[in-house]
Simulated scan of single mutants.
Amino acid sequence: MKLLILGATGPTGRHVVDLALRAGDSVTAFVRNPAALGDLADRVTLFTGDATSPRDVSAAAVGQEAVVSALGVGTSVRAGDLFTRASTAVIGAAGEAGVSRLVWLSSFGVGHTFDWSSGPQKLIYRTLLRSVYADKAIADERIRSSALDWTVVYPTRLTHGPAKGTFSADDRLPMKGNPTISRADVAAFMHRATRSGEWIHRSPVITD
């Protein structure tokens, strides 16, 4: 499968790249800094650009079969308008290139999932993550309103632990406390979703 991966050098995106290569996919890694891919640079097609630039994303989307976005802001508690601008660029680029499949990484607690959150989660989402989540909410709704075959993924708190393969995924899951899921498991779910119609036009919540 020909995959365009945004955020390919990030902590989740790197796992997606690894899994795609193991599966024999043709990977185009959309990055700001090619050196960040390290030893994987020779195994992927590198595209250096800005994920919020419609022109850059459009050029990278040509010839792809699916777009996977694992964009994030790292440890920052401010998104600026990264997700809103990137979603606009991706929707337009995919439409122009004739790419219908989009798997987009969001966060549990964004938009409609906030109401399903536990008390401890809501406190964090209302304070520390308020700016980032507001930007993500707008982006997610834009994607859901698009003509693409989208999947918007809502993982709980991300960790750097190893993949367990035992996580739960559904349109809605009960929450207690502040559950977690490894980035490796999130990447595995996203990669599988590109090949399956099960999650098209759905917004799965995933957690351990």
Rank of each mutant, 00 (worst) to 15 (best):
L21M: 06
S100E: 14
D81V: 15
F47T: 09
A163L: 07
G80E: 06
T151G: 03
A70D: 02
A89K: 05
N33I: 15
R14H: 07
A94H: 00
D149Q: 11
V67R: 00
S107A: 15
G80V: 13
G24H: 08
S203I: 14
P179W: 11
S182H: 03
T45N: 08
S196L: 10
Y154V: 11
H201P: 04
A86R: 11
A59Q: 10
G109W: 07
P155H: 01
I181C: 03
A187H: 04
R172S: 14
T9S: 14
R101H: 07
E96P: 08
V17N: 02
I181R: 01
S58P: 07
E65A: 13
T84P: 05
K122S: 05
R183K: 14
G111V: 13
I200N: 00
H160C: 10
L148I: 14
V17Y: 01
S196E: 10
T194P: 08
V152C: 02
L19M: 14
D18P: 00
V16T: 10
S100F: 14
R183H: 03
I138L: 10
K2W: 10
L21E: 03
T207H: 02
I124P: 00
W199L: 12
P34W: 08
G63L: 09
G13A: 11
N178C: 06
E65T: 10
R43T: 14
S106G: 09
A163C: 04
P11D: 07
L19I: 15
D185M: 05
P54L: 08
R202G: 04
L173S: 03
V73H: 07
P54Y: 12
K176W: 01
K176R: 05
G49N: 04
V16P: 04
G74R: 03
G10K: 05
W150T: 03
A66G: 13
H15Y: 05
E141H: 04
V68T: 08
G92E: 05
S145M: 06
V132T: 13
W104I: 12
V103E: 02
K164A: 13
P11N: 11
G80H: 12
Y133N: 09
H112L: 15
T84G: 15
A20H: 06
V67T: 07
D56A: 11
G72E: 01
V16I: 15
T45H: 08
A169Y: 13
W104M: 06
F83V: 15
G109C: 10
S107L: 07
E96I: 15
L158G: 00
L128P: 00
G63C: 08
R130T: 12
G177T: 09
Y133S: 04
P54G: 12
V68L: 13
D115W: 05
A36M: 09
D185T: 06
L102I: 15
V132M: 06
Q64M: 14
V103Y: 07
D81M: 13
W104E: 01
F189Y: 04
M175N: 03
S100K: 15
A35L: 12
K176S: 09
A66W: 02
S203N: 11
V152R: 03
A94G: 06
T84H: 10
D135S: 07
L40V: 12
P11W: 01
R183L: 07
R78I: 11
T84I: 12
P34M: 10
K136N: 04
